[in-house]
């Protein structure tokens, strides 16, 4: 009685109805979001920038004409002048006597590594704390959230500076420092998102089906809460790259001064801003464009995941 007697429908009508029936393949929410992303021009621009950045970082040895951070041409650099464009050096030299183009290409690699590792660190810490707080509730929630409040009350750059100073001049220090500063942001975001999900009927439905609390939190509430966190992570990648530059600028970067890193290149060139502005402008543009790419991507992702834009 529930199967509708639509089989008797005349053929002419069936032809007209076209896709009224269910086709076989389903579209999950993530697939749907991806389809919306593909139709969004700013997402495509963002994705292209990010893709270019990643390609440059990965294939740096193939793209760069020279070995990085070798300072082979230090003798050509004088206190007042840095050689500009020439046949051997597309963009000239940097103040330490390395090829500027090579340094910029390898800088992408350094920025990407630091960006990804620090964001991953922040994300992992934030998800653990956020899940504890949002999933368990009660006193755990109170405890975790007070801790997060304390961490959030310290400006994130200051927090990163102190952590980096404590850990000393190690390459990993800067990543941990930047990541740690992101932990409370992710934790709070995830907890808020989980609390909103926990009030949804499907959680109640899961309880009434006899699912275990752990299963409900881990395989229903958490995955549904991750959307805003992933968007935030994309945006954080952009800020992480800027923060790396800022920390390098403050002298808290990696120990080897010659290692290509956009922020440090900015620092090293600042006293030549008058005579050779391209030395600061080029790494500055690299930082800005990459950050823009991640931001565009993150914002479009937020739009694509927005429940209001769903059918």
């Amino acid at each position: 009685m529930t199967a509708e007697p639509l089989s008797a429908r005349p053929q002419a009508l069936t032809d007209l109805m076209g896709d009224v029936g269910l086709d076989e393949r389903g579209t999950s929410l993530w697939q749907g979001a991806f389809q919306r992303l593909r139709r969004n021009p700013s997402a495509i621009i963002g994705a292209l920038i990010v893709l270019a950045f990643v390609l440059v970082a990965v294939f740096a040895p193939l793209i760069a004409p020279y070995e990085p951070a070798k300072s082979q041409w230090i003798d050509q650099v004088t206190p007042s002048t840095v050689p500009g464009h020439s046949a051997e050096h597309l963009l000239g030299l940097d103040p330490l006597g390395s090829d500027l183009f090579t340094q910029l290409v390898y800088g992408a690699r350094q920025s990407l590594i630091i960006g990804i590792v620090s964001t991953a660190f922040g994300l992992a810490g934030g998800v653990i704390l956020g899940t504890l707080a949002g999933g368990l509730g009660g006193w755990v929630d109170t405890l975790v959230m007070r801790l997060v409040d304390i961490l959030l009350s310290i400006p994130s750059l200051l927090l990163a500076v102190s952590i980096a100073a404590m850990l000393g001049q190690r390459p990993s220090a800067i990543m941990i420092a930047i990541g740690a500063a992101q932990v409370p942001i992710f934790a709070r975001l995830l907890r808020g998102s989980m609390l909103a999900q926990r009030n949804q009927d499907y959680v109640l439905a899961s309880f009434s089906l006899g699912l275990r609390r752990r299963t409900i939190v881990m395989s229903h509430v958490l995955p549904n809460s991750l959307g805003p966190v992933i968007v935030q992570a994309t945006l954080t990648l952009a800020t992480a790259i800027i923060e790396v530059a800022a920390l390098s600028y403050l002298g808290l970067g990696a120990p080897d001064p010659a290692v290509a890193e956009w922020g440090r290149m900015l620092v090293k060139a600042q006293d030549r801003l008058q005579s050779d502005p391209h030395l600061t402008l080029l790494p500055g543009i690299c930082i800005a464009v990459t950050a823009l790419g991640f931001t565009l991507l993150g914002e479009s992702l937020r739009e694509a995941l927005d429940p209001k834009s769903r059918r």
Binding site: E4, P5, R9, P10, A12, L13, M17, V20
Partner: peptide
């Protein structure tokens, strides 16, 4: 039967025909 979503454009046929037990080729 069916849902309000199961419809045909009025310019082609009766929009209710897909849910109608009395629909036939005349409805197109």
């Amino acid at each position: 039967p069916g849902t309000p979503r199961d419809t045909i454009a009025w310019s082609k046929a009766c929009a209710f025909a897909p849910r109608c037990q009395f629909a036939d080729d005349d409805c197109v």
